[in-house]
Design a binder for these strands. Sequence first.
DNA 1: ATGCAAATGCAAATCGTTTGCAACAAAAAA
DNA 2: TTTTTTGTTGCAAACGATTTGCATTTGCAT
Lengths: 143, 143
Amino acid sequence: MTEHTTGRVDHEADLRKAGIRITRPRRIILRIVSETDDHPDAYEIFRRAVKVDKNISLSTVYRTMKLLEEHGTIQRHAFAGGPSRFEHAGEEHHDHLIDVETGDVIEFRSDKIEKLQDEIARELGYDILHHKLELYGRKRRSA
Amino acid sequence: MTEHTTGRVDHEADLRKAGIRITRPRRIILRIVSETDDHPDAYEIFRRAVKVDKNISLSTVYRTMKLLEEHGTIQRHAFAGGPSRFEHAGEEHHDHLIDVETGDVIEFRSDKIEKLQDEIARELGYDILHHKLELYGRKRRSA
DNA sequence: ATGCAAATGCAAATCGTTTGCAACAAAAAA
DNA sequence: TTTTTTGTTGCAAACGATTTGCATTTGCAT
Ligand SMILES: [Mn+2]
Ligand SMILES: [Mn+2]
Ligand SMILES: [Zn+2]
Ligand SMILES: [Zn+2]
């Protein structure tokens, strides 16, 4: 990842270096996904993009999400059968707790669990490429 | 779950007790899901069902899967964005390692991980209703 | 500035799944 | 057992999410 003097990642330079063209829609979508801290789906990204440029199409959002995913800029999640939701892949790896009542997504990370996963896979003769850990829960009612 | 003298679960009696009608298509689908040890999707179940009764419809498979899921007879998985895949919910809880090359599904269980998940959720103020842990990996090439 | 490959918007197609509805079959009542 | 009630079926059409074909436009190397 190309680092700018600020310490922030310069996605555009990064993509250019990979031979990917920077177009107006791509620039806009890239800003949206890298500046949010939630987990929007394609349609939500489209909705936000249209506010910037009225004639961006949903197709382009989908195409761009796939491109950015392949390039490692973003990550795709498929929580509970719903539409794919995306997040910027800059920060360290983490997993998710989904509030089944509100749909809220809470991030967490457990090094112990991560390590145990590797051990399990190794015992089974596999190398883990990626994994998905999602907890679905409800706020504890301390009535 | 109703146990027969054999020790095996009698799903039909079980469903009847819950006021659910046992029909010919349901009986056939029930046999298919309770006798396989893989994780077929709806269409695969349909394919197998048609071999028994030529005019079972895919709609009925979908409707029955939903019914059995709600009743707790089967479990639904959504591996890697693909179609839902099902498995009989008789055995103890386990998680899955998916071979990204072959699509094979390997089952495993880690009490340590299960416990850690509960701890994490508790610390975040949540009770876990269910969870999903999927490892995606490739057979280790010990070259 | 020019040319060409690549990306866009739009509409139509695709995939997995759900639904409305008339015919039908299971369980309940007679 | 026959009738009545009520749930279930198969089929086709609708659905939501995503992908694709294609004519047009754009980025960008020359
Ligand atoms: Mn996240
Ligand atoms: Mn399993
Ligand atoms: Zn993790
Ligand atoms: Zn588990």
